[in-house]
Structure formats: C-alpha cells, structure tokens
Design a protein around this nucleic acid. Structure first.
Length: 595
RNA sequence: GCGCCCGUAGCUCAGGUGGAUAGAGCAUGGGAUUUCUAAUCCCAGGGUCGCUGGUUCGAGUCCAGCCGGGCGUACCA
C-alpha cells in the first residue's frame, strides 16, 4: 500500500526514491502509541522530507494523497504532529478478519512461506548431578522456541545433548571406588551419585576457607592428597575403554537418565533425540586428524588447537596435552554428524551466555572446516542469580534442586486454589481436580517466570516473584481461559457448532474493537519471536491480550447480551480462549477448565 | 590487559529496524460485585532512562569517552 504510494511519489518527481530503498521505507509503519492516533502510523514522511527540502507535514500530505488504502483502512486524515500518517483499520475489515480467524483452525496465523529445517539443541544437563535451577532456563526456553517454530511451519528437530561423558564421571568413578555407600545406592542411586559428585568436586576444587569449614572433607583431602590427579586418571581410563569404568558407566547411566526423565515428564518437555556426548566419542579422533590434515589445527604446548585470531590469542583447543578430547571436539563432531544426517538449515544452541566465546570459536572453526552454509546461532540467556546478586545458591551453598522448586510452586498454587474453592462451594472442584489445577498453575508459574524475561539479561531468582499468582503471570492467562470456559459451560453452548454456523462479528464498543485488533496480531507476534528467538515477546503480548479480554469481560455481558451482539461476543470469547490456550501451549504451559 | 553483556519508578523488569506526553507487575492510596469465576476491573501518586559529549527534524534506542557492576579469557562443560 505504502509501496505503491511511494512509487507514485517518486514517479511524479516529488522526491527521488531508489527501488532498493523502497522496502525499508515501506516498513516504517508501527503500532501507534495511543489509540487516539488510530491503529498504525507511517513515519516515512519525516525522513523523506529532509531530502526533498520540504516540510515533513507537506511530504506526509503528498503521500496521503497518493495512498490507496482499499477496504482495509479508513481513509486517512491530515498528517499529525511532525508528519505522522495515521491509519485506522476499518471496522468492517477488522470484523471480517476476526470472523475468519474464528473459523480457522490456525487462528488466523499463516504458515511461513519457506519452511526451514531447524535443529534446536537445548537443556543438555550433566547427567551425573541432579538438575537444579540453572537447567530450567535452557529447558524451558528451548522447548518454547521449538514449539513456536514448529507452529510457524518449520520442520523442527529437538536434540538433548546430554553431558554424559565428561570429567564429572571421573569424579563419580573415583568417589565410587573410594567413598561409596552401597546401601544408599541401592535405595536411591541418583542421590548417592549426587552425593559422591558433590563430595569429590569439593575435594578437587575446594578453596582453603571452604575446607576449613568442613573438617570431614579436609580429612579426606589429607588422606588422598593426589585426588585431583586420580580423578583425572579415572576420566582418561573411561575414555580409553577401561572395562571396569565402562561397566560402571553403563551401570550408572540408567539411574541418571531415569532421574532427569522424571523431571522432563513433569515439565511436559520431550525431545526427538537424546544424543549425548558419549554418542560422538567414536568420531573425536577423526575430527582432530581432519583438522590437522587441513592445516587448521596445530600443536602448541603439547595440546592441539585451532588458532583463530593469531598466535597470541587463546586457540580453540580440540585435544589436551594428555591426549584427551574436549567439549570443543565433541561440539565439532556433533555439527558434522547433524549435517550429515539431518541436513538442517539452522542449528540453535540454547545455552548460558557465559559460553559465548566458546560458540564464537566453535562457529568460526566450523566454517573454516567447510561445514556448509548452515546458520549456527547461540541463543544465549543470562545467569540465574540469588537476591545477593551472586549465582543462585541455597543458604548452605548448594544449588537449588529443580524438583524442590516445582514442588514449592505446586504447593503455593494448591493453597490458592483451596482458598478459592472454600469461598465458592457451589463451583468447588473435587480433590483430584484441585491437584490437577495446582500442578498446572504451579508449573506454569515457574516456567512463565523464566519465559517472560528478556533472555539475554541475568535474572534475580525469587520464590515469591516466581510463584506469585497475580499480575503478569501464567495464572492470569489461565484464569482468562477458565472464564471463557465458564461462559460456554454455563450457557451450554457447543463451541464447535458455533464455529460452523455463520456469525457476524460486530465491534461497536471500543473494548470489543480493542480485543479484536489484538487478536489479529497473533501471527506477527510469532514472527517477532522468531526474529530474535525471544519468547518474552509472546508472553508480553499474551498478557496484553488477556488484559483486553478481562476489560471486555468485566464491562460487557455475553450470555445476557441481546440480539446480534450475543453471537458476536460469543465468537470473540471463543477465539480469545483458543488464542490464549494456543499461546500458552506454545510456551509449554497448560490450561484448566475451572480454577 | 583484551573480549562480551548490563546500568530505566521504592523492588523486579518491558521498551524490533531511532518516532508522538518513557511502560508493566509488585508494593502504596482510593474506587467497583442484585448481572457470565474479584486469581478480576477502573483511577491515582511515583523517573536528571549511570555521566558527558556527538550524529539527527527527532536518541532510553546509534557513535565516542568516562563511572559503576557481571561474565569470559590454553588444556572443565
């Protein structure tokens, strides 16, 4: 539309516009800051006026006179302010758009024109240690992005690149051989392995003051002065194929996997593939040889590395002086394997921002290695901090278990649900329903707290904030969905049937119109999410949408509405409920019928 | 030292490609329910957008320099 007007502007000699500029200028349209200015406004007149030596308002008037808005917008008025061209979607066009979305299974969202095959690599916990709050961001953000990309029409492959082969197993192996408690392992294998891991890590890494506070650990260090070297040796033996260490690894793995799978079940997160580090182990030597053969990697201080930024900058190490491989090696082998087997257009890594440098080096090396033109993206996110601004730990200095966090969320949601039920005995859900509500709302609250934040910044962890159930939280949206359900169940209306019959949508009240306009933006919001891989764009919009619905719901009767307004409002409610549910579903958050 | 990120209301945070009086939640104060779920809605107060310059018709946003903080920086992942 603006495209044509600007072309005409150029053709009639008002201002010269090169064809390649046209796209950029046409995009200078945005949602207005205030509804009194209309719905959208074009800002290209100001930029063009300078070049033409004209006043911005005159330029805007020139554009308006050449603008053919068709049926979509009301005829534009005079330019406003410094030269804004304000447009208002015509009521008829908006109403028809809502009708179409209402009858559409995809809720008016059109699939991408050119689907890409996208690998999403996320979660990737270390299986040797219990999952803690640090794992939740990658898991929740990665899962949401995978769902959103798939709904947009892309072909998505999710892969959980488990840490199942690293130094942490050396610690567990050493711990098992020297400090194990077989009784405890028989009862709860993961707990025992976790204990061994934490204990040995302390013996290896602990600072002096840490040991001073823990006499038992200090005694063990005194007993095993060479613990660090011995742990290292266990790792090397495992990698070298030592029979006993392999056997123990085989024995530990099922317990480790069972533990994390239980958490994934509870989070409703699943993966197409779970190819951990161990899977790539057979390819590592070949990777190093190939890099060396191509003259990319060379020896330095006994290790093998790729010098990317000159000899004085740290190289990208692919083999240690002792011959062991590093995660750089595994990551390179992984890219190659994925390209060979999946031919993806993009690979997304949903990983902590502290590994940014590693990924820079990894991606550079992969390009030098000739691994095709696949787009490699580090979808980074900030660290979870405690309220002291330090990486989040419990009072005792341990990381907070993910499961305990989920339990706490469910407990708080359950408490709130029971209060609500007590206040309204008539609609009171039974115990099983209450438990389901608590689980859905509690887990939703925890996930939402993570997703609603711009992923690039660190975030301060707070139980109270995360589990709060008012304001901008999942519960607010879930509540709006439940209220939609309430309307249809109370009125006994079959929503499927409603959708099959022709409905004339009317948006006479400003609150109906605002809701309708918001509903039409679902597709463009998902596009924005993909542009920067930021789920918080979707949470922000869903909150906006639920807010519009609450305002509408509060002010206007639906079931008791008279005449054509009734079916029109029923359609608005149905569509809003479905969009909210779908939006939450894309975030990995469930909904309930009553709450 | 070098590299990346951050500094916005009392607190926690939003603020695509520069656009109109900088927004939200929590907290604080006030109001709304004979009517579809008050986990709701409406209204109010709250700000030198770290500082100083620059580019621009227009800067929270772009550039430079400072101040303050985080993270990374050769054989952990």
């Amino acid at each position: 539309m603006f495209h044509v007007a600007l072309q005409r502007l150029s053709d009639t000699g008002v201002v010269a516009i090169a064809p390649e500029e046209l796209a950029g200028l046409t995009e200078q349209v945005r949602v207005t800051a205030d509804p009194k200015f209309g719905d959208y406004s074009g800002t290209m007149a100001m930029a063009l006026a300078k070049r033409a030596g004209r006043k911005p308002r005159d330029m805007a008037a020139e554009i308006i006179s050449r603008l053919d808005v068709g049926e979509l917008f009301d005829p534009p008025g005079e330019p406003v302010g410094p030269g804004f061209i304000n447009l208002r979607v015509s009521d008829a066009a908006l109403a028809r758009g809502v009708e179409r979305a209402f009858q559409d299974d995809r809720l008016g969202v059109v699939p991408v024109a050119e689907p890409a095959r996208i690998v999403v690599d996320f979660s990737s916990p270390n299986v040797a240690k219990p999952m803690h709050v640090g794992h939740i961001r990658s898991t929740v953000i990665g899962d949401a992005l995978a769902r959103i990309l798939a709904f947009r029409g892309h072909e998505v492959i999710t892969d959980n690149h488990l840490g199942d082969w690293g130094t942490q197993f050396g610690m567990i192996l050493w711990g098992w051989k020297h400090l194990r408690d077989e009784q405890a392992f028989a009862t709860d294998p993961t707990a025992e392995l976790g204990r061994l891991y934490r204990l040995v890590r302390k013996l290896v890494d602990a600072k002096l003051e840490e040991l001073a506070a823990d006499p038992a650990a200090a005694a063990l260090v005194a007993e095993h002065p060479e613990v660090a070297a011995e742990v290292h040796a266990e790792t090397v033996r495992l990698h070298a194929g030592d029979a006993e260490n392999r056997r123990l690894w085989q024995q530990f793995m099922p317990a480790c996997r069972g533990e994390i799978d239980r958490i994934y079940d509870r989070l409703h997160v699943s993966f197409d593939h779970t190819l951990g580090e161990s899977f790539y182990q057979p390819f590592l030597a070949g990777v190093v040889e190939d890099l060396q053969a191509r003259g990319l990697a060379r020896e330095s201080r006994g290790a093998m590395g790729v010098f990317l930024d000159g000899d004085d900058k740290p190289p990208f190490l692919v083999r240690k002086a002792d011959g062991a491989f590093l995660y750089a090696t595994t990551d390179l082998a992984t890219i190659k394997w994925r390209l060979d087997h999946w031919q993806p257009d993009r690979i997304l890594y949903v990983v902590d921002h502290r590994q940014g440098q590693h990924f820079d080096q990894l991606f550079k090396t992969a390009r030098l290695w000739g691994l095709g033109h696949v787009a490699l993206v580090h979808v980074a996110f900030g660290t979870v901090l405690g309220d002291d601004g330090r990486p989040f730990k419990t009072r005792a200095g341990d990381t907070v278990g993910l499961e305990a966090l989920l339990d706490e969320g469910v407990e708080r949601a359950g408490q709130r649900a029971r209060e609500m039920a007590a206040g309204e005995p008539a609609a009171s859900p039974d115990t099983i329903a209450l438990q389901h509500i608590a689980e859905t709302v509690g887990i939703g609250a925890v996930k939402y707290a993570d997703l609603c934040q711009n992923r690039t910044t660190d975030y301060v962890f707070s139980f109270d904030k995360m589990l709060q159930l008012t304001g901008n939280t999942a519960a607010y949206m879930q509540y709006a969905v439940a209220r939609v359900e309430g309307i249809f169940s109370k009125a006994g209306i079959d929503r499927e049937a409603l959708r099959r019959q022709p409905v004339e949508v009317r948006l006479d009240d400003p609150r109906e119109r605002a809701l309708g306009l918001e509903l039409m933006r679902f597709g463009e919001v998902l596009e924005d999410v993909e542009a920067d891989y930021r789920p918080n764009v979707l949470t922000g919009w869903l909150y906006e949408l639920a807010g519009r619905y609450s305002t509408f719901y509060d002010a206007l009767p639906v079931i008791k509405a008279e005449g054509p307004a009734r079916n029109s409002r029923l359609a608005l409610c149905d569509l809003t409920g479905r969009v909210l549910r779908k939006g939450l579903d894309l975030l990995g958050i469930g909904t309930v019928e009553k709450m």
